[in-house]
Design a protein around this nucleic acid. Structure first.
Length: 628
RNA sequence: GGCCCCGUGGCGCAACUGAAUAGCGCAUCAGAUUUCGGCUCUGAGGGUUGGGGGUUUGAAUCCCUCCGGGGUCACCA
């Protein structure tokens, strides 16, 4: 039971009696006293001035006097403007520490009364993972851990976008230029190898496009498609007429797309997709082979990121379920069919427009398979409470529509689907763009930060006596810890800037700074002889009280982080905790303390700070070392 | 253009969802410590919270408007 819930009812009673009116409990605003003022907890008295008909100081004093009569843990008070600050007895805080120390999993609710699913990663299978995926994976994985200590059994999942034109592009390029190259023959990671052919496709396309656009511009249409030629001429004329730069660019974009689709290589790749959908054996085998390479490569990356999944869904399976659901929705009137055979939903009553759910040729779109996937998941896990989708904020609209569709299809659980929408990761040089080669590769980045951690630790760490394996593990722990912390300390919703140098920093608000505090506490505890129960009658230092107060907030923080799906709250809490601890560490001595009870209390305090650091960082997927 | 998100010291981020003098880190400057791990701690300078209006005893936070940045409006995923 926290301080607030102890004081609030008493205050409600006192104020009601004092001024003979019924006071709304919501008006009892208790908050932590700001550091610049004396006290631990503060009542805002502004709301009562109307009923007391007195000034803020006087009103505050009246209330405080009454409270002190009835509650003895309040030892003093002061009023500043409309703020009534209460000081709480040392013994209360020591009791808190004693209580915290007695709990094995302090702050964590490890029951598994309900099931939640978290989806994250969900990459396309045509190129390697990059920095953006790192933010996604770290966030999603951390949220699953956070919900896991908020009373949920967790299922970590992803939807693998294994089907579609993107993977066919890699396949076609490999067939044409690959000369049988495999991950084994080239020594390349599978995902990197497939990515290489995706790039090769793009290059071949560009070359053909350059030739074609020159020919068409000169009026040499060869044996081009008549409709396309007509459209091309119409657009060209329209473009020439436009004065406005922006409008002209838009049209030029359309021309480019039109030309794109007229290249032989694009026609070939589309044909390949059709063959795949028809499960033509040769294409299908190639698809399976190359996807296999990619998965193997991804597994290595996930392993090194320290994330994992309990259940995988493949788009190549769920789009069929989606199509069936669209058929049903068509019968029930949720969807409607246009003349060309395409199927739509009308969302104009929700302030949105019409949205396609099935193409005219009967093939599935992105939305179709997402409907299918969600449905399949609730089928697979009958007790599933909800799904958290960790997907970038460029898809806000998509998920808004998806959840609406699920609701309109009559699924009650649609209300429990949540889009954990996170902002893009920018570089100091601007956006990541694959065309400009500014994409930061996930494997490369992880190697970099681990190498950096190695250099720094060898320079000034305490690693003598460690085995090579232990050292390697430590470098990984520090490097990856720094990277994860850097990517998660920012509010997920916000777009963030990734500065490669800062991400491996050791000072300030960083992962290694927090890891260091843990290592130092561990060192301290190794030296401690024996630790016994806290005596609650001793005096405590200012820095000790602040530290205990912060520790006491931990359970509430865990709940808040779960409610908000925000690892950033955990990161900021941990940082604050470490700063308070460092300050404490600096201002009192532990082993030189003459009073045995005080020394013991400081050790207990250190021990509990250490274990909260450990569990909190654990929720970010970050390990903490015993020494570093 | 319609809809959505964002704008906080030079830079990067906080602010318990409406409260006190808006915090922290980097960077800059000045200090502490022969110490239980100096990857530490203390202090200083730096702000009209993009501009303007409104609601409120009280606004970075809520409403309106304008400016700036981003996203999205595909029979792509």
């Amino acid at each position: 039971m926290n301080l607030e819930s102890k004081l609030a009812p008493a205050l409600l009673k006192i104020i009601s009696e004092l001024y003979s009116v019924d006071v709304n409990p919501a008006q009892i605003q208790l908050q932590k006293t700001r550091k610049d003022f004396k006290g631990d907890i503060t009542l805002v008295v502004f709301p009562f001035l109307k009923i007391s008909k007195k000034g803020p100081e006087e009103t505050g004093a009246e209330i405080a006097e009454k409270l002190m009569e009835s509650i003895d843990l309040v030892t003093a008070y002061n009023t500043v403007k409309g703020f009534l600050n209460f000081e709480i007895a040392d013994s209360y805080w020591l009791e808190q520490l004693k209580g915290i120390n007695a709990q094995e999993n302090y702050g964590l609710d490890l029951s598994e009364s309900k099931i939640q699913m978290v989806e994250y990663s969900s990459p396309n299978t045509n190129k390697p993972l990059h920095l953006g995926h790192l933010r996604n994976n770290f966030l999603g994985h951390s949220v699953s851990l956070i919900l896991g200590v908020n009373g949920y059994e967790m299922v970590k999942t992803q939807i693998i976008n294994d089907r579609g034109i993107h993977i066919c592009k890699s396949m076609l390029a490999w067939e044409r230029f690959g000369e049988g190259e495999t991950p084994e023959s080239s020594g390349m990671k599978g995902d990197k190898l497939v990515g290489k052919y995706y790039v090769a496709f793009d290059k071949a396309l560009k070359e053909e496009l350059a030739v074609l656009s020159k020919e068409w511009a000169e009026g040499n249409f060869g044996n081009g498609d008549e409709k396309a030629i007509a459209e091309y001429q119409r657009l060209s004329e329209a473009s020439a007429e436009k004065e406005d730069d922006k409008a002209r660019k838009a049209i030029e974009g359309k021309i480019k797309e039109l030309l794109n689709n007229q290249t032989q290589i694009m026609k070939d790749v589309k044909e390949m997709l059709l063959k795949w959908e028809a499960k033509e054996s040769q294409v299908y085998a190639l698809w399976e082979k190359m996807n296999g390479w990619v998965y193997k490569g991804f597994d290595v990356t996930y392993e090194s990121m320290g994330v994992s999944f309990d259940k995988l869904y493949y788009e190549s399976d769920t789009y069929i379920t989606g199509k069936e659901l669209v058929e049903k929705g068509l019968e029930s009137g949720t969807f409607f069919k246009k003349d060309d055979g395409s199927v739509w939903i009308d969302l104009s009553d929700e302030g949105l427009d019409e949205k396609l759910v099935l193409r005219a040729d009967g093939t599935a779109v992105y939305m179709t398979q997402d409907i299918g996937t969600a449905y399949q998941r609730f089928l697979d896990y009958p007790k599933l409470d909800g799904i958290v989708y960790t997907v970038g904020n460029e898809q806000d609209y998509h998920f808004k529509v998806l959840f609406l569709i699920l609701k309109k299809l009559g699924f009650k659980w649609a209300a429990n689907c949540y889009h954990l929408s996170y902002g893009m990761v920018d570089l100091p040089t601007g956006k990541m763009k694959s065309r400009e080669g500014t994409v930061v590769d996930a494997d490369d980045l992880i190697n970099d930060v681990v190498q950096k951690a190695k250099d720094m630790t060898q320079e000034r760490g305490h690693i003598e006596g460690m085995s090579e394996d232990e050292k390697t593990a430590l470098y990984r722990m520090i490097g990856l810890g720094g990277l994860k912390y850097y990517l998660m300390k920012v509010d997920p919703k916000k777009r963030m800037l990734f500065n490669p140098e800062e991400s491996v920093d050791l000072n300030g608000n960083t992962g290694p700074f927090i890891q260091y505090a843990h290592a130092r506490i561990s060192s301290l505890l190794r030296k401690a002889e024996n630790i016994s129960e806290v005596q609650t009658t001793i005096d405590i230092h200012e820095s000790e009280r602040e530290l205990i107060k912060h520790l006491a907030d931990y359970p509430e923080l865990i709940q808040m982080a779960g409610k908000e799906y925000s690892p950033a709250l955990i990161a900021n809490y941990s940082y604050e905790l470490v700063k308070l601890y460092n300050s404490f560490y600096q201002s009192v001595s532990i082993f030189k303390e003459e009073d045995a009870q005080k020394m013991n209390m400081r050790l207990v305090l250190s021990q509990n700070v250490g274990s909260v650091i450990k569990t909190a960082m654990g929720l970010l997927g970050i390990q903490v070392p015993e020494r570093m």
